[in-house]
């Protein structure tokens, strides 16, 4: 593809005086799944926070659909089509599931299509539709994650960013979450995934980037990284050696 959907180059982010990201660069093709992996505190979430406009990068370029978007506010980013499922899901816990979903279509671009998008989301997550009048904070972790993804989809994103969707979920639910990501991708949603569950994240990814203390240590195709001995040693423990 000639032009990627998202191109990030030389991204530097600071929290106060502390530099969290050093010269991060990568690109996400339209229709792809791109994973950012790394351990705790590597800066994975910071990349997503910078891309969604929640933190302002100190320098660097972010090109989305061919135009520069770095430094724009979060509300502008969502309207442009970059949507984030925040870490820990971030549901509006006192509101019902349906209200959460409807709030997802808050932007001017998404609001007129709300009813139609809701149908699509309900089709993707039949469990959610059955529980639409329940208070969101009272649902199980897996269900909450589905509502969070559904809510992000309500803004009709061109790029869906997921921040550790498997966090705190039982292994079986984690599998379901990754199946959902795969289904979404089949429906032409481009996905930028941040994960600590490295094995799953690499398996699903077309391309991936490995972050370590704010710097890029490796990039490559998902399956190549999965087979890389360095990655296996550093992130997956020795049990995987035999496979």
């Amino acid at each position: 593809m000639a032009n990627p959907l998202l191109r990030v180059s030389d991204l530097n982010v600071f929290y106060g005086d502390a530099q969290a990201l050093w010269d991060i660069g990568f690109y996400v093709d339209e229709g792809a799944v791109y994973s950012i992996i790394g351990s705790n505190g590597a800066g994975k979430s910071t990349v997503l926070r910078a891309l969604s406009g929640l933190v302002r990068p100190a320098s660097g370029r972010v090109e989305f659909l061919g135009s520069r978007v770095e430094g724009k506010g979060a509300d502008v980013m969502v309207d442009l089509g970059i949507s984030l499922v925040p870490e820990g899901r971030g549901l509006f816990t006192s509101l019902t599931v349906l209200e959460n979903l409807e709030l997802g279509a808050f932007t001017k671009r998404a609001r007129p299509k709300r009813a139609k998008t809701l149908e699509w989301v309900n089709e993707l997550f039949p469990i959610i539709e059955a529980r639409k009048d329940q208070q969101a904070g009272k649902m199980s972790g897996g269900e909450q994650q589905m509502v969070a993804i559904g809510r992000a989809l309500m803004s009709r994103p061109k790029l869906l960013m997921l921040d550790e969707p498997s966090l705190g979920l039982a292994p079986l639910i984690v599998k379901t979450v990754f199946e959902i990501i795969r289904t979404l991708n089949e429906q032409k949603v481009t996905i930028l995934l941040v994960e600590q569950n490295i094995h799953q994240a690499l398996k699903i990814a077309d391309r991936a980037l490995v972050l370590k203390t704010g710097r890029t240590t490796m990039t490559g195709k998902g399956d190549e990284l999965l087979a890389d001995p360095e990655i296996q040693k550093a992130y997956m423990g020795t049990l995987r050696k035999g496979t």
Binding site: L84, F92, L95, E99
Partner: peptide, 23 residues
């Protein structure tokens, strides 16, 4: 109104509200 939704969203989770396009 829809304004009230935005207020409640800010109350429940500021980061998520911002990530949903609420100023």
């Amino acid at each position: 109104s829809s304004l009230g939704w935005a207020l409640k969203a800010v109350r429940d989770d500021e980061t998520a509200a911002a990530a949903n396009g609420i100023n």
